[in-house]
Amino acid sequence: MAKLRTRNHKVVLARSAGGDTGISIILINLGLFMFLPMWYILIQSLKPLDELWMFPPRFYVISPTFKNFRDLFTLMNISWVPFSRYIFNTLLTSVAGTFGHLLLASMASYALAKIKFPGREGMFQIVQLSLMFNSTVTAITSFILMANLHWLDTYWALIVPAWCSSLGLYLMKQFMDTNVNDSVLESARLDGAGEFRTFWIIAMPMVKPAWLTLIIYSFQGLWNAGASMYIYSEQYKSLNYAIGQITAGGIKRAGASAAAQVIMMLVPILVFVVSQSNIIETMGSSGMKD
């Protein structure tokens, strides 16, 4: 019989020291590969100009400064379209896109997971199949479609497609399958609650981790959206695009552009930090059956 030991009150198989060391070495190296570029972004934003152009470049900063961030805000103030407009655009599309998605996808997931009606298998299969290709495939025809809907150069072109993201529905449906108890729903129905009421009052509170996950995925996508082929007018463009324009300003804006990169990356990272445990919980039921 193999050697056993306990860890966190659980009995586990004894691990060989050699294996532990090997794994630690691999993990640390991979970790540095992932972490150092992120660290470098942060450090660059805190470097005064003379340190930004120092040879050789350093992964630390000697006299850190927030001047780059101040420069960034100055640059924002002199942009042709007021910068608040870009912020408003990104916030509007993120919020409207995310909440529409959450509502539509949860409602559909509830029906697909918890009501036995003809056609549900087929519908879910198609959504699952659509996880297997990305939006590049549909880009050209979607553009023609948007043109025919007269949605080009409007917020609709950014918001509505976000409503029907297939990953969100997939994760929500799988989560409801495993985490919403049928007998609870049954008793609610016996008490005379209709399906909409059962969905909203009983099922939705039981899937909080999943809706947080949907919100975060949808928000990340919309927040990171850069220039869209559907939008021409400057006043409808996204924050990410506007920041990209500042970054494109070349050498004399190196400091401000480093600061901009930090701001753009910190938002999704912070959002993930506060919701990590919920997302992992949702992923627990993400498995795909064949």
Partner: peptide, 10 residues
Amino acid sequence: FYAPSISGQA
């Protein structure tokens, strides 16, 4: 490990 994949254009 996860941060680079969500940080937009990092």
